[in-house]
Write a protein that binds this DNA or RNA. Structure first.
Lengths: 336, 336
DNA sequence: TGGGCTTAGTAAAGCGGTTTACATGACGAT
DNA sequence: ATCGTCATGTAAACCGCTTTACTAAGCCCA
């Protein structure tokens, strides 16, 4: 590979001149410019990014940390971030933590190594304070999708409370009164907020909330199935379920089918996320759509602003919307 | 951040000693080792990777190029690669080409910039020779999932021919004789091979292959739906379809439903890939499973071997397997 | 004719490591 | 006493680029 010096020699100028010319830090007469351009073309010179980075201390790269990149929700988020980053000339490192806190910490350390300029962090487990402590002294991080309490960085979330409210109200409007909630781990912001939205809709409609119908566990298909099974085996059955993720909803769907029942005839169901498969399952899932592409793009833009020091740590909330498909049916009283 | 020199000063030795000690290139007496270790701990020294890379010319990072990271198939592949890379201390750059050849070329250039040590490349469009020409002079690339003809690098593919053969034979064994094939773009290796497998099964069973039932287009849901519509509207209808990707199969599923028909009662269907949603759709899809995790892992290992010069350019074929679910029914003749 | 201002550059010191080649002192052997 | 050898390191160049501070030459103007 040709180096900057090679180009300089070939063009009969100093390396400094070439460097400054390439970075628009100097005005050179046409003749000199032509000689440099010719040398670059002839030698097929391409700057060594490593050297550039070492020298400038910037890497023009960011890292995105997801719990699991093979999860379509995070994959879509990552894809949106990547697209935005790419359009600004930033490369993207990715890492899946697979729920391992150590790997989350690793990613943050990489950032400290100046390996990358900034970090977009997604997590899906409640933090015990470790992450918060680590992030407290770092200022080029953006939190996406889920909060880590106690750190003040830009955050891009959705209207979780409103989402659960919309979903629950949709069920209530269909005539349901006995509605259960299935959600993720208790410590998570999204779980708390969605629960609040659920409660608001129920209270507003004057409906009772049964403690044993509030299932908080994890955002997984398995937990959805298990919770649904428990609910269906209870002495009193709900007629509808608000599931706080599509994965949970899929689990419910399978458990219901296994019990020989049918969604929505025997049980109405609303999901959350609107992942690609939501409209492919049977029945197509009524769910709360998160603007995933928008979230990813915005997160990158916040980060970029942060790097350019034009951003203060602020929290953005993106709207969600109810997508009506076919997993909710009007309530028909048992007596009929 | 503390530097190597800081550590050396604190430990009362030269930077050389510290560097060599950290890289196991020198034997030092216990006392010296302890002083260095203490200095590292006290200063919280962490090596600057950029400097290290510039110096060694290695980046301990690879890049993975996918057509679209939000596509679960590629996301799973990427996740597997990432996991393998991570366990060997390699970081992973990701880029989605979104079908843009320019972005594929970009990724290769990044490699040449020594930005990364190696590249795992996935593509899903036939190459017009541009990529092949670019890759011809590069030796740290591994091709995954799909071929680029004319380049001799390690390749990790699946038994495409056998997969389509198994799927088609499964349909034949269920009594079907009128079987259509829906697949991706004509120029692709996987498409060619799967077509061959399909033909082999048909010929073996003495069944005719109708040219108008060979649909080659693209691996997308839309094309699956459109092809199914065409097939259903034809004067003679197939009773079964071999779809060469689960995305295609989903499209078929939707078109069939739209036509007021039912899978598998009116039409049997086999997919290819066994993506996560394959068992979630209605009916759960009988399909050909690709060992995605294995593919990703193996691809990384090939690349690693390549970097260590212990690998010759060889092509690996991974076995696929038929996963029977509920989208295939025995053929019942119309007369009944 | 010399002082100041432009123009068109350059020298050299970093950035933070790695690596090659060499140095110093102690010790054992002759 | 001297030589060779081993143990224990070190000096300095280098990776390829950026950046700060400086300079040489030319020109204008008084």
């Amino acid at each position: 590979m040709a180096t900057l010096s090679d180009v300089a020699t070939a063009a009969g100028v100093s390396p400094t001149a070439v460097s400054r010319y390439l970075n628009n830090r100097i005005e050179l007469p046409q003749g000199t410019r032509d000689r440099i351009d010719a040398a670059i073309a002839k030698l097929d010179y391409r700057p060594n990014l490593l050297a550039k980075r070492l020298s400038t201390g910037k890497s023009e790269a960011i890292s995105i940390v997801t719990p699991e990149i093979s999860n379509p929700f995070f994959a879509e988020l990552a894809a949106a971030v990547e697209a935005a980053a790419d359009s600004h000339g930033y490369a993207v490192y990715m890492s899946s933590t697979r729920g391992d806190p150590l790997r989350e910490i690793d990613a943050i350390k990489r950032l400290q190594d100046q390996h990358v300029d900034g970090l977009i962090m997604m997590t899906n487990r409640p933090d015990d304070g470790t992450l918060a402590a680590l992030l407290r002294h770092i200022d080029n991080v953006v939190l996406l999708d889920e909060d880590i309490p106690g750190v003040s960085v830009p955050k891009v979330f959705v209207e979780n409370e409103q989402g659960a409210y919309l979903g629950t109200r949709h069920l209530i409007e269909a005539g349901h009164r006995d509605i259960a909630l299935i959600s993720g781990p208790a410590g998570l912001m999204s779980v708390r907020e969605r629960q609040t939205g659920f409660r608001r809709a129920m209270v507003e409609a004057g409906l009772p909330i049964r403690a044993e119908w509030l299932m908080l566990g994890e955002y997984s298909r398995a937990y959805g199935a298990q919770s649904a099974k428990t609910l269906l085996e209870g002495s009193v059955r709900p007629t509808a379920i608000m599931a706080c993720s599509d994965y949970l909803a899929i689990g419910v769907l399978q458990a219901v089918r296994q019990a020989g029942l049918v969604v929505p005839d025997d049980l109405s169901l609303v999901g959350f996320d609107d992942m690609a498969f939501a409209e492919l399952v049977d029945p197509p899932l009524t769910t709360i759509r998160q603007p995933v592409a928008e979230m990813g793009r915005l997160a990158f833009e916040r980060l970029l602003a942060l790097l350019n020091k034009t951003e203060v740590a602020t929290e953005i909330r993106l709207p969600v919307e109810l997508v009506v498909r076919r997993s909710v049916a009007p309530f028909v009283s048992k007596g009929q």
